[in-house]
């Protein structure tokens, strides 16, 4: 199918641990799929500290919101260990959105707006080495 060919011609990039894939506040023009490794999504909280919003594992998508609503990056995406990401062409996303049912498109935009609003309203505590270490220990206890 022509569509499959389109999806396969994608840019792939490797990142080292700590590399910034995009910065919070940047204008967004690409969405990404993690092919290998992990990506940490980090946001600035009160006091200028950083808080982890989530970890995207292989197969996961990130960066799609700013691409769709033409806003700025809500958080930074940072390689957690070496990782490989595929970028999804903006053209593809825009074309498909334009062609889709207007009600579906409206709901997609609404969900993005809600995600941004709720994230802004959430007073996340900052990451600390102690807290992150404690979480790892808790999870490994069955």
């Amino acid at each position: 199918m022509a569509q499959d060919n389109q999806v396969r011609v994608l840019n792939r990039r490797s990142y080292y641990d700590g590399d910034v894939i995009f910065h919070e506040g940047d204008t967004g023009s690409q969405a990404f799929v993690v092919q290998q490794g992990r990506v940490r999504i980090v946001r600035t909280v009160e006091g200028g500290e950083k808080a982890t919003l989530g970890i995207i594992e292989a197969g996961g998508i990130f960066g799609e919101m700013a691409l769709i609503d033409k806003s700025t990056r809500m958080a930074s995406a940072i390689a957690d260990g070496t990782c490989v990401c595929i970028s999804i062409p903006e053209e593809t996303v825009r074309k498909k959105l334009k062609a889709c049912d207007p009600v579906v498109r409206t709901v997609i935009l609404m969900m993005i707006r809600m995600i941004r609003t709720v994230a802004d309203e959430t007073r996340l505590p900052p990451d600390t080495v102690d807290a992150l270490t404690r979480e790892v220990t808790e999870e490994t206890v069955p």
Partner: peptide, 27 residues
């Protein structure tokens, strides 16, 4: 509508709905 939609759009919708749930959970 999602049944008839482009699979990319349907996948995107599910991803965003999942992210919204996560964001609400976290809050």
């Amino acid at each position: 509508k999602l049944k008839d939609a482009d699979p990319f759009i349907a996948a995107l919708f599910r991803i965003l709905a999942g992210n919204l749930e996560s964001t609400l959970d976290r809050k």
